[in-house]
Design a protein around this nucleic acid. Sequence first.
DNA 1: ACCTGAACACCGTTCAAGT
DNA 2: ACCTGAACACCGTTCAAGT
Lengths: 189, 189
Amino acid sequence: MCAAPAKTSDADIVAAARAVIAARGLDALSLQQVAAAVGIKTPSLYKRFDDRAALLAAVQDDVLLELARVLGDAAASGSTPQDGLHAMGRSYRAFAATHARLYPLLFGSSEPSPAARAAIAPVMTALIALLGAPLALPAARTLTAFLHGFVTMELSGNFQMGGSIDDAFDFGLDAVMRGIGAHIMRTVS
Amino acid sequence: MCAAPAKTSDADIVAAARAVIAARGLDALSLQQVAAAVGIKTPSLYKRFDDRAALLAAVQDDVLLELARVLGDAAASGSTPQDGLHAMGRSYRAFAATHARLYPLLFGSSEPSPAARAAIAPVMTALIALLGAPLALPAARTLTAFLHGFVTMELSGNFQMGGSIDDAFDFGLDAVMRGIGAHIMRTVS
DNA sequence: ACCTGAACACCGTTCAAGT
DNA sequence: ACCTGAACACCGTTCAAGT
């Protein structure tokens, strides 16, 4: 029933694709390189992944799961929800810097994935503890929008007016955290 | 000296490329389509633009100049710097929604362009008036990071947890504005 | 069941040749 | 000066054929 033994595996292919993207960027990824890296020919990839987009989605999941672990660790490192959120914000930026060429992949596709849910879960948990359920969702969107926007612009070189980008991030993270907190103060009073 | 009269112009080519991207998206753009739209053959494009990237940069400039005008109008519509900034934030999101498939082009390249400077100029002016020069730069980066991140995630369909995205944007813009203001209050006191 | 060679329709880009 | 035909080196994808 198995005349041709498998030369590789789904996980090997994902790892090879991830390595190519990490080294040369998403645009430079070709299925030929991935196939060659795992020792098969290009058409064989289609036995395991529907198309290029499906392979990229698998790599995206792989990276998102790693991000979820990093953010979970950061959340656990804080003694208060505020501390945890601050640590997650800093870890997020550090993760993006470490995986600069992988990062654009994270927001490429739009289908809801368990990996994406896992990545935002610790943020939601901390915000629910801090602000309560009704405000946690818009607050999470505000925080993730800031983090994603900042990191994207930083990695793309879009901060071109000089000054310290580290300082801008610290300023911005503080401002967003305070803005979120100020809002609950005002609506509660 | 001019044996072959020009069938088209740089501006025509940029307009055609912009129209294709607006209709079908950046990934679907091919130089063949652009050339056909202006009535020439593909290789002729290389007499006017170095390569595909140069053409995209020209389209990016075209869109950025339009954005600069929209933001300038919004800034002028506010009677206070705060009002102007709020209006710019809302106009920015509206601009992105109207030009959804063009928007990803704006943050693609990283070379500093006069058009990009023109687009952020009204934001910087309002923030200098509001916070003073030293804080204006990190505040501008915080605000633009939030706006760009929010709009990117919204357009990519990355807000997948239900709830009103309009409400989240209003909440977030208020929070960021308040966070920026709160910071100056604290450092000034 | 997994892999491959060959083919298809497309890309961006170059360049000698036309007018 | 501007345009074109032909060619080049690449893509992603399909499919019949091998084992």
